[in-house]
Design a protein around this nucleic acid. Structure first.
Length: 570
RNA sequence: CGGGAUGUGGCCCAGUGGCUAGGGCACCUGGUUUGGGACCAGGGGAUCGGAGGUUCGAAUCCUCUCAUCCCGACCA
């Protein structure tokens, strides 16, 4: 491509509203332009990189037996009603009516669509296992898009779906994806780690997320440096020290002005672990009689004072569609007193008790009376509830595997893999006949990679203070020719030779000063720059500059192609 | 959905009641330059986010509204 033919321009100044260097350079270099909040166009440069990323993914998906298809963005609402997600997902799922007044949705993922296809196509176990994938636009009406391409509302995702006759087959395909994903990220050049994750709205049991560790990420990952433990904080386990004791008599004590655990433990002179705190949230639940309706109920979470509640775990433990902080009136209506709350005497509320509380005794809890607490409360004797792990992992707490202190890091989720099981095949009736002629639900898995988010992460990982420094595998072009000669004659010759050899080349044939051309080349970030200048040209040479290292040297005209190949292959 | 901020040519910004809305970058024309964002001269481009109001007079004050960004809630 010649730069005189490229309409997109570079920006000398940083547009406002950029949060990260990666976003800034993608904008300044003219890779992307914003259309609306969380909605971007890919200009020619980004488009080429996105295509390359897709091709890498495509090759790796094909290598594990994937069949590429293309499913629609617009779905009939019926299939989403069948799986219940029409009802369980809030405004993030966009709905509309077609001209015949039928409910439609913009697909935010394609489990429904693919299951709908497969329930018609799959008849016998002989057709299994199988796996399909596609690259398709997803629309998720995120309430708060941010950080350029990191978190958007419209994006392209590679999503694949596996179909097996049993768990063993699923695990095989899951494992194949697990390794294929590492190959994909490695080929793109992005360092990632796989962590255990929450299954969220996808349902299912086992899942992993591929995390690019970077402070701009929105997920918190809990890691152990002493062993290999890693998990998204939403599901991270911790080793909890328990403190069982002989039960003592419960006793009411006046504790004025002790609404927080800190105030309480200071007032009583006891460690936070000797207290049990109550956290009240309103949970939204599906009406058992009518799945189109839902109702709210107060959830009281009880956790030891030295720990915090992890909402994702709590939501799973109580089976709520969603949780929100409860208002004071909602709390008092159930007999609890904010600041002095405990499950003792509470009514009309579901009580979830962390195992740290169930396994420790004689804890101080609220008396549900302003200014009073109860000493020596004990789960089982004084109140009942469902025991679950609802504790939030944080830096310094003990690793569940080796008990060493955990670390916390921020990360961007660039891919995820889910063992769905029969969550979709059962609700949609996607079955096959086994050897005995008996209908069995298909065992499914789903696997996603956000293509644009991957590019955003690469821009984040590969830049210096002057611009992008992209790896050859995903850079829009391999070679950037900066022509400083009066005419384009020699440059055109080299341009043609390099392309003849199969390289992708962008030629700066504009009538611009050297400074402008160099700065733009730095900004665009191609791996190899070839400069044509008077001095070197008189010696029959051109100048090579490796963008990543800044290394520069001269190459004679006859060796341009082979030298360029050498640089790009190393 | 709560809290905060910002909307002025393609981009970055100045302009807090008073002449025809200004600068830098970018763009066009001519000339001079030509190895790290050149210089000179000339030029084009704006219903100051939108609507309503106050006023002799509004980019500027008031009301409403829309959009974008940040924090939180939310999020495969």
């Amino acid at each position: 491509m010649r730069m005189t033919g490229l309409f997109s321009r570079t920006l000398r100044e940083t547009p406002g509203k950029t949060e990260s260097k990666g976003h800034e350079f993608l904008l300044r270099a003219g890779y992307i332009r914003q259309a609306a909040a969380g909605i971007y166009s890919a200009l020619p440069l980004a488009f080429r990189s996105l295509r390359k990323i897709e091709q890498i993914i495509r090759e790796e998906m094909n290598a594990i037996g994937g069949l590429e298809i293309l499913m629609p963005v617009v779905n009939p609402a019926e299939i989403w009603k069948e799986t219940g997600r029409w009802y369980s997902i809030d405004a993030e799922l966009s709905r509309f009516k077609d001209r015949n007044d039928r409910d439609m949705v913009l697909a935010m993922t394609h489990e429904e669509t693919v299951t709908d296809i497969m329930r018609d196509e799959l008849q016998t176990y002989r057709q299994l296992p199988t796996m399909v994938y596609h690259f398709q636009t997803k629309w998720r009406d995120d309430p708060r898009p941010r950080a350029g391409l990191i978190r958007v509302r419209e994006f392209t995702m590679k999503d694949s779906y596996s179909f097996d006759r049993n768990q063993e087959g699923l695990e095989k395909q899951y494992d194949a994806h697990y390794h294929a994903y590492f190959r994909i990220f490695k080929r793109c050049g992005l360092p990632v780690i796989a962590v255990a994750s929450d299954t969220g709205m996808m349902g299912g049991k086992v899942s992993h997320e591929y995390m690019y560790l970077n402070p701009i990420g929105e997920d918190t990952i809990i890691l152990c440096s002493s062993c290999d433990y890693s998990a998204n904080r939403q599901v991270a386990d911790i080793h909890k020290q328990l403190y069982p004791e002989d039960l003592l008599e419960i006793e009411e004590k006046e504790t004025p002005g002790t609404k927080t655990i800190e105030e309480l433990s200071a007032f009583l002179g006891i460690p936070a672990r000797k207290t049990a705190k109550a956290v009240m949230l309103m949970g939204r639940f599906t009406d058992p009689g009518d799945e189109e309706k839902s109702y709210e109920k107060l959830i009281t979470a009880i956790i030891r004072g030295d720990l915090d509640v992890e909402e994702a775990k709590l939501q799973k433990a109580c089976g709520a569609l969603a949780l929100r902080p409860a208002h004071d009136e909602e709390i008092t209506a159930c007999g609890l007193v904010p600041g002095y709350a405990s499950p003792i005497g509470a009514r009309d509320t579901e009580i979830i008790v962390d195992d740290s509380v169930a396994g420790s005794n004689n804890l101080v809890a609220g008396a549900n009376k302003e200014g009073y607490h109860l000493l020596n409360t004990n789960f089982g004797r004084d109140y009942a509830g469902t025991i679950a792990d609802i504790a939030s992992a944080r830096e310094g707490l003990a690793c569940p595997q080796c008990k060493e202190p955990l670390e916390a890091k921020r990360g961007v989720e660039v891919g995820n893999i889910f063992q769905l099981g029969t969550r979709y095949s059962e609700s949609m009736g996607c079955t096959f006949q086994d050897e005995n002629g008996k209908a069995q639900p298909v065992i499914m898995g789903s696997y996603g990679i956000g293509v644009g988010r991957l590019l955003a992460c690469l821009a984040e990982e590969f830049h210096d203070d002057k611009g992008l420094v992209l790896p050859a595998a995903i850079a829009p072009f391999h070679v950037h020719i900066v022509n400083l000669l009066k005419t384009n004659e020699e440059a055109e010759k080299i341009y043609a030779d390099l392309m003849e050899a199969g390289l992708e080349v962008i030629l700066d044939d504009r009538k611009e000063t050297a400074g402008v051309k160099f700065n733009d080349a730095d900004l665009l970030g191609m791996p190899l720059r070839i400069t044509l200048g008077n001095k070197a040209m008189q010696d029959g040479e051109v100048e090579f500059t490796v963008r990543s290292s800044g290394e520069g040297y001269r190459v004679s005209l006859g060796e341009v192609v082979t030298s360029a190949m050498d640089v790009l292959n190393r």
